[in-house]
């Protein structure tokens, strides 16, 4: 039959399901802590000693919520760094495309989307950096703007049809790869924010 400490450690492991390696590591660490605490209790060995040790430790859900909040901060940092790099690479790729293209050959709509979606993403990103650093929405809007800009840029330059120079193609490939990485981090941020909210409910 599982003891009070075993039940508590199992509950903590469940609450930390958003980060399996952390759950694994913490389960062993917390179990050691609780056994030390229970053994220091005058009533040891008994279920009461284990219950008191668990009671002093705090609710598994609250501890998991603190870890989840820290995970949100780390994920937001990763997303912001990726966003910053993506913006720079997109700008450079955009300039390379413009330098390569004959301005007169541009279609009407694509250059507008290319330019203004990028500017919108940049503006939202700057405001978000100062005011909404943990916001999923800010990151999602920036991602949307950059996807529109890069997509329009590729269409504008007709990269698949024409014999574009290698440096233009490499820059476009870097843009697309970074957008994929950014999307991965933005989705991760959304997932961690939802988990933190559910643990605090």
């Amino acid at each position: 039959m599982a003891g009070v400490i075993d039940d508590y450690v199992a509950a903590l492991r469940r609450e930390l399901d958003f980060d399996p390696p952390l759950a694994q590591r913490l389960a062993s660490e917390v179990e050691d802590h609780l056994r030390d605490a229970a053994e220091a209790d005058p009533a040891w060995p008994s279920a009461d000693a284990e219950r008191r040790a668990v009671g002093r430790f705090g609710l598994a859900r609250e501890i998991a919520a603190q870890f989840a909040a820290d995970a949100v901060d780390r994920q937001a940092r990763r997303a912001w760094v990726t966003l910053g790099v993506t913006v720079i690479v997109t700008f450079v790729a955009m300039r390379l495309r413009v330098m390569w293209l004959d301005d007169n050959a541009m279609a009407a709509l694509a250059p507008l989307i290319d330019r203004y979606a990028f500017i919108a993403a940049l503006a939202v990103g700057v405001v978000g950096w100062f005011a909404f650093r943990r916001s999923f929405m800010t990151q999602a809007i920036c991602l949307g703007g950059l996807v529109a800009s890069v997509g329009a840029g590729i269409v504008r330059a007709d990269l698949f049809a024409q014999g574009a120079p290698v440096h233009v193609l490499v820059a476009a490939a870097a843009e697309v790869a970074l957008l994929g990485l950014l999307a991965f981090h933005v989705v991760g941020l959304g997932r961690r924010l939802r988990r933190t909210a559910s643990l605090r409910r």
């Binding site: 050691d32 802590h33 430790f57 705090g58 870890f67």
Partner: peptide, 26 residues
């Protein structure tokens, strides 16, 4: 280790810092 850290904090604060022990792990 974690348990010793909590014990040190409790003894240094003469029990004034009576926070849930699990708080130290995050």
């Amino acid at each position: 280790h974690g348990y010793a850290i909590i014990e040190t904090i409790k003894s240094r604060s003469a029990g004034a810092f009576d926070l849930p022990e699990g708080t130290v792990y995050p």
